[in-house]
């Protein structure tokens, strides 16, 4: 009798173990579905594509102000500058178009991607600087105007195209995705906030004077003109600033952690259109 009981206990334990293992096995498509379903259920009045408009999708007053501002959008100067910079040849005569598929036009929705040669995630900002360096130019700061202008132009040529981030059949790509997810949900800084604390648990709520944007589609609007910054900001600048605001020491822009975070956050927003460059309060 006791032998039978022991057998039953062992079988149950094995069953529970197998279930736990199945739950822990990385499954990006299931993650993306759960992620998107969460926001759709939380904000049933917000149209799916409207999540890319961040706080404007969930506050009528802000939306009216934004729609008026879009008549003369504050990112227009950056857009024009980016267009010129993109076309201007490097000293060796080549241009950015030589570094990218389709001459760099209408490709924003495919970034970041996993580079199997390097074994790491490559973001658009990183690819732009690598293009510069490969052509004998100095890299731009990841948090300043030049990079924001270039990515603004590239995003603009991709407006309306839906995010299509791929995770190739490569364990390193899956690992990068998982690490990005871990970073997104990990609390940091003296305030003990994770990215999710604001952008999953509290979108639509105020934090001081600001209305928090949902994580779903948050990168589709990048880069952004922020009134708070009185200027343009890249994805790198946004992440670095978020870290500082929680009183965490930011990592270096385009560190592996930030690249992985961008990979995860972009993947779970697959299917949403590019709306960048954007404007935010």
């Amino acid at each position: 009798m006791s032998a039978l009981r022991a057998l039953l206990v062992a079988a149950t334990a094995l069953g529970l173990g197998a279930t736990a293992m199945a739950e822990d096995k990385p499954n990006p498509p299931a993650d993306a579905k759960a992620f998107q379903d969460y926001f759709v259920k939380k904000f049933p009045k917000v149209a799916f594509d409207d999540f890319v408009n961040g706080p404007y999708s969930m506050n009528a007053d802000m939306r009216r102000q934004w729609e008026e501002k879009e008549q003369f959008p504050p990112y227009e100067f950056a857009l024009e500058a980016g267009k010129e910079m993109f076309a201007k040849p490097f000293k060796n005569g080549k241009t950015y178009a030589d570094c990218f598929p389709n001459g760099g036009i209408g490709i924003r929705q495919n970034y970041p991607y996993f580079d199997d040669k390097e074994g790491k995630v490559v973001t658009l900002e990183l690819a732009l600087n690598r293009c510069r360096e490969a052509n004998g130019e100095q890299p731009y700061s990841y948090v300043k105007d030049e990079m924001a202008s270039l990515t603004a132009y590239m995003a603009y040529t991709s407006r309306g195209k839906r995010f299509d981030i791929r995770i190739p059949d490569d364990p390193r790509a899956l690992e990068a995705y998982e690490k990005g997810k871990e970073y997104f949900y990990t609390r940091r800084g003296q305030l003990n906030f994770s990215c999710a604390s604001c952008h999953v648990q509290s979108p639509g709520e105020r934090i001081r004077a600001e209305i928090l944007a949902p994580a779903l589609g948050i990168l589709n609007a990048m880069p952004i003109y922020r009134s708070e910054w009185s200027g343009m900001g890249t994805i790198s600048r946004r992440i670095v600033t978020c870290n500082s605001q929680t009183r965490a020491v930011p990592l270096e822009p385009q560190s592996d952690e930030y690249r992985n975070l961008e990979y995860y956050l972009s993947y779970v927003s697959n299917g949403l259109p590019v709306s960048g460059p954007g404007a935010r309060p």
Binding site: E23, A34, R187, S197, V200
Partner: peptide, 23 residues
């Protein structure tokens, strides 16, 4: 004391982050 608190946070979050994950 602050540095030690940040170490505790980092080590405890190695597992605790999963509690926040949308599943």
């Amino acid at each position: 004391a602050l540095a030690k608190a940040s170490i505790v946070q980092a080590t405890s979050e190695m597992q605790r982050w999963k509690d926040l994950e949308i599943r």
